[in-house]
Design a protein around this nucleic acid. Structure first.
Length: 448
RNA sequence: CGGGGCGUAGCGCAGCCUGGCAGCGCAUCUGCUUUGGGAGCAGAGGGUCGCAGGUUCGAAUCCUGCCGCCCCGACCA
């Protein structure tokens, strides 16, 4: 993509409404534009990141055997009356009336609808287990939206729903999602610590929130220092092996970690020796939850078991805040100059900077490199604009592409390109013809 | 929902107290000189001063009402 033909409205000054780093950089880098409180347009650069994150989430869901569907944003009130949540949900739910005076709502979540979909399509225990998910916009009319897309009213969420014949099978479904979440966040370069979460009236151990440590997080967290030493890479697992999967869950839940709502000081002190007690703040980027037959019973999601008896299915729901992750990644990966994208979610792989646009030799060298990198499968943003060097450097640092390939008359004379790593700041003089190979050899292995 | 604050050009702001030509910086456009970390000079374009009403010869400025947005707290992917 040539920058001269792209739409990238960057800002030099901080917009005054943006208090936290991710919000500031997203606005300045031209990723989003606010349309209303908690509602944003996604501009080209932001949309690219959103799609990358969405795709990683999708791939990791599919890997567990979960199946993608797409449910509408608008739902009928009827289903919510059946589950009893229409009145319970309160003002957070945006209620709409259509032209026939039918009561509709903009979905804040989809337990009712997915349970009804399953009910209609499943009659036998032989049809289970099944895990259906979708990645769809949600609307929750938050009292106070803030921090840009981190707490928007409209947000993109992956929500998965598992259905099993009995409680034991449901735990395996839950565990699979737990492991999938570890892998998902790891692939985005994040360490998201699973923490016991409030299970509300249902009880039990089976609810965890996944939190990214960040000063700007909305939750206060308490955890064992040993968690930092766990293997946070996207390790391989056999999802069909119940023991392996539950073993991973056991490992990652063996160390104390709790958000303020579950935190009990005496328990923390009991389980963690003093020098290993850490506390801080975290951003919730996922929440998984096993709720048994809470929705299947009222909505009649029943299958026949091997004895021919009708039994309500056991379910769980599993959410990932896809749009929130864009902000969370920036919170955990930036410097004073701008964003530092992990390669897996970067909007482009490389920024090619032409320091002397209009100079024939420099233009030609850039064109050759642009084609070369494109042929090598790299996604390149080519800054071919007739701007000054300083502005180009600043803008490229701001938008945070993993690599910058800098071409000026100086290098062109020697046949050399300057390759800069955005994260480390390291610069390498690389022969023009070897730039694509250099980037391939020095990029983090693709974890797909 | 309680408390605080803001609304003037794409972004950041001044002007309002004490009513009298709507300004500054950045950005944008044109020309020249420059050209490896946000250049210089000269010129130019861009505004329903959030909206409505009122007071006044005259309102960005004073008064009333409304709308929008931000921040802090109680709630949440």
């Amino acid at each position: 993509m040539r920058l001269s033909q792209y739409f990238l409205p960057t800002l030099r000054d901080d917009p005054k409404e943006a208090e936290i780093v991710s919000h500031r950089f997203m606005l300045r880098a031209g990723m989003i534009r606010q349309e209303s409180a908690g509602i944003y347009s996604w501009l080209p650069l932001g949309l690219r990141v959103l799609k990358k994150i969405e795709q990683i989430v999708r791939e990791e869901q599919n890997r567990t055997g979960a199946i993608e569907v797409l449910m509408p944003t608008i739902q009928s009130a009827d289903l919510w009356r059946k589950s009893g949540r229409y009145d319970d949900y309160g003002k957070e739910m945006l209620r709409i009336t259509d032209r026939h005076d039918r009561e509709m709502l903009y979905g804040p979540t989809n337990e009712e609808m997915i349970t009804d979909i399953l009910r209609a399509g499943t009659q036998s225990y032989k049809d289970l287990p099944v895990n259906l998910y979708h990645i769809q916009w949600k609307f929750r009319d938050e009292v106070r939206p803030r921090f840009g897309i981190m707490r928007g009213r409209e947000f993109l969420m992956k929500d998965a729903y598992s259905f099993d014949l009995n409680a034991e099978d449901a735990v395996h479904s839950y565990n699979k999602m737990f492991v999938a979440y570890l892998r998902t966040y790891a692939r985005m370069g994040l360490k998201a610590i699973p923490m016991r979460a409030d299970t509300g009236p249902i009880g039990g151990d089976n609810s965890h929130e996944f939190l990214i440590l960040a000063d700007t997080g909305e939750s206060e967290v308490f955890f064992d220092k040993d968690l930092h030493d766990m293997d946070w890479s996207a390790f391989e697992v056999d999802y069909d092996d119940r023991d392996v999967v539950s073993g991973v869950v056991r490992d990652f839940t063996s160390k104390y970690a709790a958000t303020d709502e579950m935190y009990v000081e005496s328990e923390f002190h009991d389980k963690v020796e003093e020098k290993k007690r850490l506390s801080g703040r975290g951003i919730e980027v996922g929440h998984i939850f096993l709720f048994g037959t809470k929705y299947s019973e009222p909505l009649g999601a029943v299958v026949q078991d091997p004895d021919g008896k009708p039994v309500p299915v056991h379910s769980g729901s599993y959410g990932v805040g896809v749009s929130r992750l864009v902000g969370a990644i920036i919170e955990s990966s930036h410097d004073e100059n701008g964003i530092i994208w992990p390669a897996s979610v970067a909007p482009f792989d490389v920024g090619l900077i032409n320091l002397r646009a209009g100079d024939e030799a420099t233009d030609n060298a850039c064109q050759v490199l642009y084609d070369q990198m494109g042929d090598a499968g790299l996604d390149v943003l080519y800054d071919d604009k007739d701007d000054r060097a300083g502005g180009k450097f600043s803008r490229m640092d701001l938008i945070g592409l993993p690599w910058q390939v800098i071409i000026g008359p100086r290098g062109v004379k020697d046949g050399k390109a300057e390759v800069k790593n955005r994260a480390t700041g390291e610069r390498h003089d690389v022969e023009m013809s070897k730039v694509a190979a250099f980037l391939r050899d020095n990029s983090p292995e693709s974890s797909a």
